[in-house]
Amino acid sequence: MKDTGIGIPADQLPTLFDAFTQVDGSTTRKYGGSGLGLAISKHLIKLMGGEITIRSKPGQGSLFKFFFVILKPDLSCAQRHLPITSPNQKILVVEDICSTRQMLFDTLTSFSFRPVCVESGVLALKALEETSGDDVFRIILIDSGMPEMDGIETVKQIQRLPGITKPPTILMTPIYEKEKTIMAANGLNIDDFIEKPFLNLQRTIIRPLSP
């Protein structure tokens, strides 16, 4: 990362990554900030086995470089119970926010799935009741934070539906509410939880194929 800001004197560089350290005492008043950003950045990079360095000249700006270790993807967290191992499958998406619903439709379609998107738990129940034959939903993606009937209640109502196959269910939840959502879903037959924003939707839906 490179900037053309005020720059940093050489004698200040050794303490730059210390918590609550700022080069100039007037920095907070003039530019904002608490002096924690670089300390947090260094800590996170160190946790991943990396290193952060800086070169700077007063009046010319600063150049930050950071290097990470190469990490292999952790496929163990991919869904173990979902039956989808290939695209061209029918997926029910339950999401009340129009823009998110459209994003999920476009994303799933680009993966060659066949999404059916509804905006409420009530419409999800109706879609499941109207499904017949072999072309059933293979997965349900449900937003946890919908109004009126939220994701947890929608799952409860789906599991009470008589005479239909209950597809595996993924509950979509904001990352900061994931723990709370998992606790609220205790005892329900929910197959997985996916965090918003969606980082790897396809990997969550398609389980790794056995060699």
Rank of each mutant, 00 (worst) to 15 (best):
G121H: 03
I142C: 14
Q60R: 06
D74M: 06
G49A: 10
A39S: 15
S86M: 01
K126V: 08
F105V: 02
V136E: 13
T169V: 12
I52P: 01
T165P: 01
G33F: 11
N88V: 00
T21V: 09
L199C: 06
I170K: 01
R207W: 07
G133M: 07
Q89R: 12
H81R: 14
G32M: 11
S110A: 13
E51D: 13
F111S: 09
P83F: 02
F67E: 14
D24C: 00
F66A: 10
T173I: 01
K156W: 03
L82A: 11
F113T: 06
E177P: 00
R80G: 14
I152F: 05
L125V: 03
K196Q: 11
V118F: 02
L108M: 13
Q79F: 05
T154C: 13
D135G: 07
D134N: 11
L108R: 06
R207C: 13
I142N: 04
K30I: 12
I164P: 00
A124W: 08
D135P: 00
P115H: 09
P87Y: 07
K90F: 02
V118A: 06
F113D: 08
L38I: 09
Q159H: 11
S120Q: 02
R29T: 04
D134C: 03
I8N: 03
G7F: 07
R101G: 14
L128W: 12
K156L: 04
T107N: 05
S86C: 01
P83W: 02
T53H: 02
S99H: 01
D96W: 00
S210K: 06
L82M: 07
E130D: 12
R207I: 14
Q60E: 15
T27D: 14
I182W: 03
V136T: 15
F67I: 12
I182T: 10
S144H: 11
T53A: 12
D3Y: 00
N189Q: 13
R203Y: 12
S56Q: 05
T107L: 13
I97C: 04
I97S: 08
P208I: 14
I190V: 15
T165W: 04
F111I: 05
R207A: 15
A19K: 10
R101I: 08
D191V: 00
N189V: 01
P211A: 10
M48N: 08
N186C: 01
Q159N: 13
P83C: 04
F64M: 03
L209M: 09
S62L: 00
T53N: 12
L104C: 07
G121E: 05
E130K: 08
G163V: 03
T165Y: 07
D18C: 06
P83R: 11
V69L: 12
R138W: 03
K126A: 10
G37I: 02
Q22Y: 02
Q159G: 01
